[in-house]
Amino acid sequence: MAKRVRSMQDFDFRGTALSADEFSKGKVITTTGEPHAEYAWDCGPAISRYLEELRNGRLIARWCKRCNRTMLPPRMFCELCWCPTTEWRFVRDTGIVNTFSLCNITWDMKPLKTPQIPAVIEIDGASAGMGIMHLIGGCDPRKVRIGMKVKAVWKPAAEREGAITDILHFTPA
């Protein structure tokens, strides 16, 4: 092995940039593929019960005896003390906005006509800081603030299907 040092400046960097047209309009040889990745994810006992209670118009949490934490979404074990959780506890369907955004685009970067307002909402009755992600709606987006009190707006009971979307959104309380 030689001792000569070749510095970064001694190299021509490789990597060939293609324009959008060259890439997607057949100016270079390309092939396509479709992974067809379709899944049915099992929910497990905690989330299955969570969904069942959403159908009933209620939010349910699990309680860790050792940490005295009421956890949402519910889970069968506490990820901090690593003990099984022991009790189901209903919490309220109100809370405060921990943080939020006004999103103007879809995941594939297409513009949205009406911005979505995703938020983390700390749910009343759960332990401090226990939030869930949901949407805020039914209000002027410019009026949304961190720390604002909000409450769940539920779908009519007959239309609920046991999903997080049984809550349409949270709206100022």
């Binding site: 293609l18 040889i29 092939t31 396509t32 593929g33 992974p35 899944y39 929910c43």
Partner: peptide, 17 residues
């Protein structure tokens, strides 16, 4: 028959040669 949620990874691929 168990409680499950359906979804996908909604991407395709365009490979250069």
């Amino acid at each position: 028959e168990l409680r499950h949620y359906r979804g996908n990874i909604p991407v395709g691929n365009l490979y250069t040669a």
